[in-house]
Design a protein around this nucleic acid. Structure first.
Lengths: 186, 186
DNA sequence: TATAACATGTAACAAGTTACATGATTTC
DNA sequence: GAAATCATGTAACTTGTTACATGTTATA
């Protein structure tokens, strides 16, 4: 039942972009890379391949357009069946929570194999990177039809939590460092 | 410089497990699936393939053991060069922050295409799932050599932040629902 | 006139998973 | 004697990325 696969999310992304308006591949790719880049990623070949599959399943329709002598563009539009699929995938996505693992946690597990001062120094660098991300990333402006800003807000909340946890943890490790440092002196 | 690839993290995981003690493949797999499952994942074939590559690079050594008539076991031990690599990868991992995207955010971006009450209902289901995860997941007991509990603590902090954000967001959407509902009445 | 932007695609590769294949030993 | 555990592996598949190939039009 809970087989929310990766395909579902990719399809949801493309169908969602097409819900806004019919677009050709280049436009779709551009939109994802510019407007959605903070929240989602999908490379060109992935998009093209998926668009083909969605077209084969009749969830989107294709028609070619040509302006003057420019390269022809394939314009994709969502179909009724596509809208149905979109709504189902959207509901599923919103109702689901997938618990991912984080590469950064692997290091945490083995923290003890590094001398405490070095571990602290490394974590301080990590902290600096998160803080830099939180400082530099420009707030996403609201989109007329989409709630990209909501997703961005979510992402930011998670990053802030990450930052706060790291600050506390570093402080905790520094306490431990002082006591063990004193022991080493004795 | 910041090419903290997926390979690095996988290698770090295996080398870290072998830092604890020399083990054979089955044992390694077992340890990852049982002790580390909350924090990291790696399937058998992935582990075997990676162990081969690490052995080829002389970062781990292999020797066969056999007990009676049982199937022979290949015991892997970390070498000096392996310990060096491990330390480097560990430092890198700890100092790095990678900003992943979350599948759940795709739905958030397209929230507006669902009638508000349905969107709220779906998000409440998501919230229930996070809460269930936070309630049922048993606290990881401290490991003698590893700080698995630290990584688990980090994961839990992130999930709590996710839960809190969702609660606030649902409350916010419900406010909006009341005002638009009133408008629809008028 | 060079280079960036517009426009579509393919091929090769990398990473990881599932499913399969094999065979011994312990437990119910 | 069936099923779970111990023990190692391979083959095929899925997914997604990078790098390549092609050609036009606007811009510096």
């Amino acid at each position: 039942m809970d087989h929310t696969s990766s395909w579902d999310d990719r399809a949801l992304l493309l169908l969602g972009v097409l819900m806004n308006q019919s677009q050709h591949g280049y436009q779709i790719n551009d939109f994802i890379e510019r407007a959605l880049c903070e929240v989602a990623t999908m490379k060109k070949p992935t998009a093209y391949a998926l668009l083909d599959r969605l077209a084969a399943a009749r969830h989107i329709s294709v028609h070619s357009e040509q302006e003057g002598n420019r390269p022809p563009r394939k314009v994709y539009s969502i179909t009724d069946s596509g809208r149905e699929v979109f709504t189902r995938l959207l509901r599923e996505n919103l109702a689901t929570f997938d618990a991912p693992t984080f590469a950064g946690d692997i290091g945490l597990m083995f923290l003890t194999y590094l001398p405490l001062p070095e571990a602290i120094a490394a974590l301080k660098e990590r902290l600096a990177r998160i803080e830099a991300l939180l400082d530099t990333t420009v707030r996403v402006p609201p989109h007329p039809n989409l709630s990209i800003d909501l997703a961005f807000d979510h992402l930011t909340a998670l990053r802030r939590a990450d930052r706060d946890w790291l600050r506390d943890t570093i402080r905790e490790l520094e306490k431990r460092q002082m006591t063990t440092g004193a022991n080493a002196q004795a």
